[in-house]
């Protein structure tokens, strides 16, 4: 089969129900070869279910599409052989050692030069001297690196990473992303779900899903532009009181504290500006218009999602 041309992921109208719950709704998504694609959305929005459908763990109720050129409904076996899936929760065997875990995974993919591949992976991980340590004894950062090494073992063409950096310290996160860039440069496509805005901004393209519905997709700049959001930054003393007075004013949709400032956002630029102007700010206060960031956009999307997405 063709595994090397066309988009890495190309699915249309995928749906999934669990009982009466419509978990994923008409998911249409395309990820190019060598692209790092960010998958964002609040908890329980259907990210994990979508990823499981892409790698053949769940069968979609309806819809169609391909993953690495293989049909997502009929050719799941072929997909599993060429996709590396890293689960949200650490899912290697805690009562096996690092080497035993990697060796087991290598056997599952029927690799012939198992011993060499595992030895190399252990070496690359920098865990050569700890290879006989139980996986359960590793810290969160090391577990995550081991899990990534395990799903790279069979040289997949597509990586599906489900919140890979949750609960990992900033240094480990940065190292992890360096690795992701290195892999993408080698032509591996990556779909990664995350809650972190800095990680979202690192992706070539991203999609935002809420309550099972894809609400926005494109590059970070495109996603921001599409929301037509105006943002103001207000700084000065007694911001709590300022926030109280702003709340409910025309044009003011969201007020979010950002350290020593608050971001006030809304889609009606004129009304928002009017509200801010009419507010008699104290002498130390300062309000300026800023470019809306991804985080402003996501907070706005998250708050609107329920009414727009449901039914």
């Amino acid at each position: 089969m063709n595994g090397n041309s066309g988009p890495a992921i190309d699915v249309t109208g995928l749906n999934k129900h669990f009982g009466a719950k419509h978990v994923v709704r008409d998911l249409t998504l395309s990820v190019n070869r060598g692209e790092i694609f960010g998958f964002l959305g609040p908890n329980g929005s259907g990210k994990t279910t979508s990823i499981r459908m892409l790698c053949g763990l769940l069968t979609p109720d309806s819809g169609s599409g391909t993953c690495l050129g293989f049909d997502v409904i009929r050719e799941t076996a072929a997909i599993k052989r060429e996709v590396g899936y890293m689960t949200q929760r650490f899912s290697l065997w805690e009562d096996l050692t690092i080497r035993e875990n990697l060796d087991f995974v290598a056997r599952m993919y029927g690799m012939h030069d198992r011993t060499r591949v595992v030895a190399e992976a252990v070496e690359e991980l920098g865990l050569a001297d700890r290879r006989d340590q139980l996986a359960g004894e590793l810290s969160g950062g090391w577990k995550q690196r081991l899990a990534l090494a395990a799903c790279l073992l069979h040289r997949p063409k597509l990586l599906l990473l489900d919140e890979p950096t949750a609960g990992v310290d900033p240094k480990a996160r940065r190292d992890f992303w360096e690795e992701i860039y290195r892999l993408a440069a080698q032509g591996i496509s990556v779909l990664v779900s995350t809650h972190y805005m800095d990680e979202a901004e690192r992706c070539h393209r991203l999609a935002y899903i809420s309550a099972g519905t894809l609400l926005a997709k494109g590059t970070a700049a495109e996603v921001i532009a599409a929301q037509h959001l105006t943002a103001w930054s207000v700084s000065g003393p007694d911001l709590v009181e300022v926030v109280d007075r702003l709340r409910g004013k025309p044009g003011v949709e969201h007020i979010t504290p950002f350290g020593a400032t608050v971001h006030v956002t809304g889609r009606d630029a004129a009304a928002l500006e009017q509200s801010l102007k009419s507010l008699t700010l104290g002498p130390g206060h300062h309000a300026e218009r800023i470019d809306a960031g991804l985080e402003d956009v996501f907070i706005s999307l998250m708050a609107r999602a329920p009414d727009e997405a449901r039914q």
Binding site: C55, G56, A77, K80, S91, E94, V105, M108, Y109, G110
Partner: peptide, 13 residues
């Protein structure tokens, strides 16, 4: 219970 079943199912096994 430990979530390793998902890992097992994601392999070609």
């Amino acid at each position: 219970e430990r979530g390793t079943f998902e890992n097992l199912l994601s392999t070609p096994a």
